[in-house]
Amino acid sequence: MDILNALVAFLNFVFVPGLAYGAQLALGALGVTLIYGILRFSNFAHGDTMAFGTMVTILGTWGLQAAGVSAGPLPTALLALPLGIAVTAALVLGTDRAVYRFYRRQKAAPTILVIVSLGVMFVMNGIVRFIIGVEEIGFTDGERFLITAGDFRNMTGLSEGLAIRTTQAITVVTAVIVVAALFWFLNRTRTGKSMRAFSDNEDLALLSGINPERVVAVTWILAAALATTAGVLYGLDKSFKAFTYFQLLLPIFASAIVGGLGSPIGAIAGGFVIAFSEVTVTYAWKKVATYLLPDALAPDGLVQLMSTDYKFAVSFAILIIVLLFMPTGLFKGKSV
């Protein structure tokens, strides 16, 4: 019986990675949910928007590194992030102008818009591959750890170490700042209020003189900012690869739907639900169990419910369960 060590092992292998991954998913899902709330379609190009924003940020990071600029202990990518957001916002605004606006004026069915977003997804994916290629790219620099496992052991005298990577800390801090700013914007500013009004009842909003094109433009800019931030944080934490970002679409959509499409608070909750379930179900609990159980009962196997290759299956199973029992998600979302 060693509760303290078990707790540290749990924090180190489940809680901290889950928290960082959950924050990344929540930011991605917020973008999806905003687009769904205002433009009323599921944007399949969101994963590739994340990839595009991250790619621009990586190029900016390389530029800064070549110029000898660095952010000290923090990754240089944080300095290049505003550039990434600006370029991505310009790209999605251009896409809206060239592609989506036509269908919006036609009042096309949501499914048609989804198919259109498939086309945009192809194009963006192609652009990213064209510019930066398909290889895996790591672009984190600066201090690697906030606390290393060894330091933690020395500090506390426990046999189990707790390592917190800088990228994990940055992910959580940035996510908190971004989410706070977003909610302040949506709840306190005039533009934010008009966005919520537009999402609740489009006709009533139009009648009260809200300019729909302005609301849509602001939504795209917010979605680009959220997607780029989520993508850069994910890339710093793990690494950048065009195809992985495309595959992130599934957990991100799962988060947004589990939380309730169109509900920002739901997207955040959904992100953490999905992330923690993926990590807990695919983690091998042997270490924690060995600390908690008496020696005679110590497990022989890995005590892993499912192999890590099935993490998609986990997010998906949760998605299906939530949809069957709460069709509009945990927090009442929309259904068009």
């Binding site: 599934l250 959509f253 799962a254 299956a313 998906f316 069709p327």
Partner: peptide, 28 residues
């Protein structure tokens, strides 16, 4: 049986996920 009652976007996500799971099973 499970997913067809869902709305069109949800069916899309559900089928996307199932395809990934089928490939994961065949790989592992």
């Amino acid at each position: 049986k499970t997913a067809l009652g869902l709305r069109s976007d949800y069916l899309a996500i559900a089928t996307l996920g199932i395809a990934e799971i089928i490939i994961a099973v065949m790989k592992n």
